[in-house]
Simulated scan of single mutants.
Amino acid sequence: MNSLGTASPAVSTSLLEDFSLEMTGKDVPKLEEAAGLVPRGTRVNVTFLGNENLRMRLDAARAVQRLGFLPVPHISARRLGSQADFVEFLAGLRADGTGTDVFAVGGDPSRPEGPYEDALSLIESGLLREHGVRHVGISGYPEGHPAISGDVLWSALRDKCAALAAQGLDGSVITQFGFDVDPVLAWIEQVRGHGITLPVRIGVPGPAGVRRLMSYAARFGVGTSASIAKKYGLSITNLMGTAGPDRFLRALAAGHDPARHGEVKIHFYTFGGLRATAEWIAQFRKEARA
């Protein structure tokens, strides 16, 4: 048994062949440190936080591109104060050549700061395509959302997919992270049952401290019962320890059936840091090939 457990080759050759990462606008130095460990062309999502300004967001997207990766800037609908703010951001991305791929999300504020209430309103505005966007990521919630009912979530997902098709835009679904593979795979089957064929990127926490992972789980309404924690490899009696997603990925690889689940890839939330996540992925892939 190696340090990561016995990894299934399927994890490396399919699910991890085209993984994506997530960072904030303040993480540019950390991405520079990890750059040598990440395959060129990797998709790197750049979040749209309330404490960041336009310049910081544009600079971060440029840095991702400069380091040889594909920037995927987030656009938070409810954080946009006006249509002019939306256009300014899109125009800046287009001028830099960093705006072909974006991620559209409603965002954390409970009330919109401007005219955009959700990701659907961003897509339906027509401004994305007008400014050179070609691919739009949208959110998925295998375990639901603490503030949104299941019916509303399914309706929103269908509507966003229909809007993307109407706009002639490619898309993909990026899910909230979780610790239990079973509801994830069941949810993907439901997605396909709704006629949604977009690729799905399963959100996975990169290696991080158990206390931090539990904190994020509580914040986003992710199930963390004792049985789920044990299944994932979290020690709720040792909050000072760390945990990686090796068990989760092996279980996902074992349960993934392309005929039922379609195209599935992995999106890493880098809660424990970009370098730690990149090192973990590189080692996991190496041992999977051994």
Rank of each mutant, 00 (worst) to 15 (best):
N53V: 06
L122S: 04
R285C: 10
D108E: 15
A254E: 15
R250G: 05
G97V: 11
L164N: 06
L198R: 11
P29W: 02
D85V: 02
D18C: 09
Y269R: 08
Q190H: 10
S125C: 07
L213Q: 10
T197F: 00
G178R: 02
D180W: 03
A156D: 13
L49M: 15
A84N: 06
G41Q: 10
A276L: 10
G144A: 08
P142R: 05
G144H: 09
L239Y: 11
R219K: 12
F86N: 00
R79C: 08
A278L: 04
R40P: 03
E189N: 03
V72Q: 13
L37P: 02
W154Y: 01
G193Q: 04
A61P: 03
S149F: 11
L157Y: 14
V102T: 13
K230P: 02
N45M: 13
A226M: 10
A251G: 09
P39T: 09
L67T: 10
R260V: 10
I75R: 02
V38G: 06
D85Y: 04
K286D: 05
R111K: 13
G206S: 08
L252E: 05
V136Q: 00
K231L: 12
G221K: 11
I123L: 01
L120V: 01
Q283A: 14
G126Y: 04
F103P: 09
T24M: 05
F89K: 01
E17S: 15
R158K: 14
N51S: 07
T175Q: 06
R40K: 15
P142C: 06
I148R: 14
A218M: 12
G244P: 07
P71D: 06
L90F: 01
V102F: 08
C161G: 13
N53H: 08
H135W: 09
A162V: 04
S14D: 14
S76W: 14
A63P: 04
V264A: 02
L185A: 04
S121N: 02
L70G: 02
T6L: 13
F179Q: 08
R134N: 09
P29S: 06
L157Q: 11
R66M: 06
A34I: 07
S172V: 02
R219D: 03
R43M: 15
F89I: 00
E287P: 00
I138V: 15
S14R: 14
D96Y: 09
V181N: 04
T277V: 14
R211G: 00
V136H: 03
P183S: 15
R78T: 12
F48R: 04
Q176D: 08
M214D: 00
R129D: 12
L249Q: 12
F268N: 11
R43K: 14
L120E: 01
L58M: 11
R79D: 08
T100I: 03
G5Q: 11
I123W: 03
F103V: 14
T47M: 10
D18Y: 04
S149W: 09
S172P: 01
D27R: 09
L16C: 04
G36S: 11
H131A: 04
L4H: 08
L93N: 13
L249R: 12
V72H: 05
P9G: 08
G50K: 10
I75H: 02
D118G: 07
T270V: 13
G92N: 00
D18T: 13
R201Q: 15
F69Y: 12
I123G: 00
S149K: 15
A254Q: 14
A165Y: 00
G132C: 08
K286M: 02
M1Q: 03
G144E: 09
G195Y: 07
M240Q: 05
S172T: 05
P183V: 15
F220A: 05
V184A: 13
